[in-house]
Computed example of a mutant assay.
Amino acid sequence: MGKQMTEMLKGTLEGIVLATLAVKPAYGYDMTARLREQGFTDIAEGTVYALLVRIEKNGLVEVEKVPSEKGPPRKVYALNAQGRDYLAEFWKTWSFLSQRLETLHHGRNEA
């Protein structure tokens, strides 16, 4: 992944993870696998785990410890009401930015 892609991804990864959790709760490794299935192949597990900890601290998810056959219990993250509100705001912001970028890309100067 190029430097430009990496930098853009840093700014949107939280929204991407929240959008993924809105579809189905996940634990860390599962989240990484789902992101990779969606084409985000260069995202490191450590990045995802750090992000999950941050969104938990920010109160955007509920966490349930679920027994695992292969070791300690897994922390399964599920979007809560505050997380859904935050995700809705992310999509509004994304829509605004993508519309402006599309306008710039096509050389139109619409305000």
Rank of each mutant, 00 (worst) to 15 (best):
G2E: 05
G2S: 08
G2Q: 03
G2M: 02
K3S: 13
M5W: 09
L9V: 02
K10L: 04
G11M: 09
G11E: 11
T12L: 13
T12I: 10
E14K: 15
V17E: 03
L18F: 01
A19D: 15
A22C: 07
K24Y: 12
P25S: 02
Y27P: 04
G28K: 03
A33K: 09
R34I: 12
E37Y: 08
D42E: 12
E45D: 11
E45A: 12
E45F: 13
T47Q: 09
R54K: 13
I55V: 14
K57L: 11
E62A: 02
V63L: 01
K65M: 08
S68H: 05
R74V: 03
K75I: 01
V76E: 01
Y77M: 00
L79R: 03
N80F: 01
A81V: 09
A81G: 06
R84V: 12
D85E: 15
Y86C: 13
L87H: 08
K92S: 14
K92E: 13
F96D: 14
F96W: 07
L97C: 13
S98V: 14
R100L: 11
L101C: 09
E102C: 11
E102L: 15
T103V: 06
L104V: 10
H105R: 14
H105Q: 09
E110N: 10
A111W: 13
A111I: 13
